[in-house]
Simulated assay, not measured.
Amino acid sequence: MLTRRALPLLALPVTARAQPRWPQRPVKLVVPFAAGGIIDVVARIIAEPLARRFGQPFVIDNVPGAGSTIGARAAARAAPDGQTLLFNGAAHVVIPALYPDAGFDALADFIPVALVGDQSFLLCVHPSVPARTVPEFLAWLRTRRGEATFATTGIGAASHLAGELLKTLAGVDFTVVPIAARPRR
């Protein structure tokens, strides 16, 4: 409740100051994967519309390595001015479990801004595998404990974790082979 003495204060002019429009300069999108990968491609697809919308370039900075921790560390150490954004994938939520000494706190040092996409998985088998359904495939795997291989995009990647989950839930065994480790022909 206002008192009679405070009432004259309402007549004083109030200076309004608008916040500067964001961004004031080019925005760096740190992509913690190599150029040409799916996360890099998606970042490049959205960078141009973002640049048009906000009137500043959105520059892709690929900083790959160590399951995305090197790039995430670079983003975490950037000035907290909103001019550097991390464009990561599911790997970001796995970092605390795989890399407890990553040099940053994956949960406390970042604030989610937008969900850009999601990822689906497809289970495929070579035509020589005598299985046409998932139950048939799991039965086939049980007869070949550890002999079958499972390709992933990398250790700790979402595809790797999905394969490990399949192994655990179905009680099967196979060898995980990161695609990057595959010998070139």
Rank of each mutant, 00 (worst) to 15 (best):
T84V: 00
A108H: 09
A151C: 12
Q83Y: 08
R4A: 15
A157G: 13
P23Q: 05
R182W: 15
V177H: 12
A148F: 04
G67D: 06
L161H: 06
L2A: 11
A158L: 14
E136N: 07
N88W: 01
R17I: 12
A108R: 15
F104V: 10
V42N: 03
E147V: 07
T15D: 11
V176F: 07
P127N: 01
R185L: 15
A102L: 03
A76E: 02
V116N: 02
W22E: 07
A157K: 12
G171W: 01
L123N: 07
F58D: 04
V59G: 06
V14A: 15
G117I: 01
R182P: 04
A74K: 11
D81S: 05
F137P: 03
E136W: 10
P127Q: 10
V129C: 06
G36L: 08
A34H: 10
A158K: 00
T149D: 15
V134K: 15
F54K: 04
A18E: 13
G171T: 02
G171N: 00
E48W: 09
N88D: 09
P8F: 04
C124L: 15
A79D: 10
F137R: 02
P96T: 00
R21M: 01
E164N: 10
R52F: 02
V177A: 07
W140P: 03
D105Y: 00
R5K: 08
P57K: 07
A43M: 06
R182G: 10
V42E: 03
I70R: 15
T15S: 14
L122Q: 06
R52K: 13
L9N: 10
T69G: 04
I46D: 02
I95F: 06
L29F: 07
E147S: 07
I155P: 12
I179R: 15
T152P: 04
V30H: 03
V129K: 02
A108P: 09
G82V: 05
L166R: 07
I45W: 13
T168E: 13
I111T: 14
H160M: 09
V59A: 08
L85H: 05
T69Y: 02
R144A: 10
V63L: 11
F174H: 07
P80D: 08
P64D: 04
V94Y: 12
R5Q: 14
S128L: 13
G103A: 02
D101Y: 03
F87W: 06
A78E: 06
F137I: 10
G163M: 09
A90D: 14
A75I: 06
A76P: 01
E136R: 02
I38A: 13
P57N: 03
V129S: 05
A91E: 15
L123C: 10
A162F: 15
G154N: 08
F104K: 05
R53W: 09
V113T: 12
A66M: 07
G154H: 09
P130W: 03
L50N: 06
A131C: 08
G171C: 00
A35L: 01
A102N: 03
V30F: 05
T143W: 08
G146W: 00
V113I: 09
I70H: 08
A158Y: 01
P64V: 01
R52H: 10
A34Y: 01
P32M: 00
F33P: 01
F137K: 05
T175G: 12
P49G: 03
G65A: 04
L2E: 01
A148W: 03
R184Q: 12
I60E: 05
A102D: 00
F87I: 04
T152C: 11
T143Y: 06
R144N: 06
D173G: 07
V113D: 04
A97Q: 13
G71E: 05
